[in-house]
């Protein structure tokens, strides 16, 4: 599903677009009317259905609307179904409480951009893929797991487990586990090592570099 570009093109593109793409994207997003967002009035299953529908719609029109179009289309849905403050807190481990409120807020906002960019970048075409919700498990009050599968066009099936938490009447994703690999654990491994070795500024820079890279190379 993913495009592979030459190293030289990547480097040249990153150098050229680093300073331009993010502001351009932000301006466009501010100026462009957002698509209507469905009301998420019910449970975790409906939240995942909503995300799956948005992803499928984005994939089916991927070539027509391009990366930026997919970003715009997915942003309001991702905002509604992910709990980025919880994700940021857990991903940072013990470093979270060492950040001041401004840094915490910056990380949460950057993580939100990074997540939308990643979806827009990776789900870039449609060739018959299918999402399916298999079951929902109650873990404890306000926490449930939605078990799903993603079937590739080749027939290869991947399992996706969404851990959801209800906060302020809204069910939101706090972790995604794909084929046994927890996204929260991956983030924690990366974030804490970056914090340990290079500090908060480097973590934010790395995240923003990845967002810029995806914006510049996504098609």
């Amino acid at each position: 599903m993913k495009k592979i570009l030459g190293v030289s093109v990547l480097l040249a593109g990153m150098a050229l677009l680093w300073a331009t793409s993010k502001p351009v994207l932000a301006e466009e997003l501010a100026a462009t009317p957002q698509p209507p967002v469905k009301s998420l009035s019910s449970g975790p299953r409906q939240a995942i259905e909503h995300l799956d529908e948005a992803l499928l719609a984005s994939m089916k029109s991927a070539k027509k609307i391009g990366y930026k179009g997919r970003y715009r289309q997915l942003a309001p849905v991702v905002d509604r179904v992910f709990d980025f403050s919880s994700i940021a807190t857990v991903s940072m481990g013990t470093y979270w409480t060492k950040l001041d409120p401004a840094q915490q807020s910056e990380l949460v906002t950057t993580l939100r951009d990074y997540t939308i960019a990643t979806y827009a970048f990776r789900f870039d075409n449609y060739s018959g893929e299918q999402f399916s919700i298999k079951s929902v498990q109650h873990l404890e009050p306000n926490v449930e797991v939605v078990y799903c599968t993603f079937t590739e066009a080749s027939g290869e099936v991947h399992t996706f487990d969404y851990m959801m938490r209800s906060r302020a009447g809204s069910w939101r994703i706090i972790n995604v586990v794909a084929d046994g690999v927890s996204d929260l654990a991956l983030k924690q491994a990366e974030f804490t090592h970056l914090m340990k070795l290079k500090g908060f500024g480097s973590l934010i820079d790395n995240l923003k570099n990845r967002i810029t890279y995806m914006a510049n190379t996504g098609q």
Binding site: D79, S86, W96, T97, P101, R112, R167, A168, G169, S170
Partner: peptide, 13 residues
């Protein structure tokens, strides 16, 4: 340990 939700642009309604 959470930041104030109201400070975030995507705070839950």
């Amino acid at each position: 340990d959470m930041p104030e939700k109201e400070t975030l642009p995507f705070a839950a309604p």
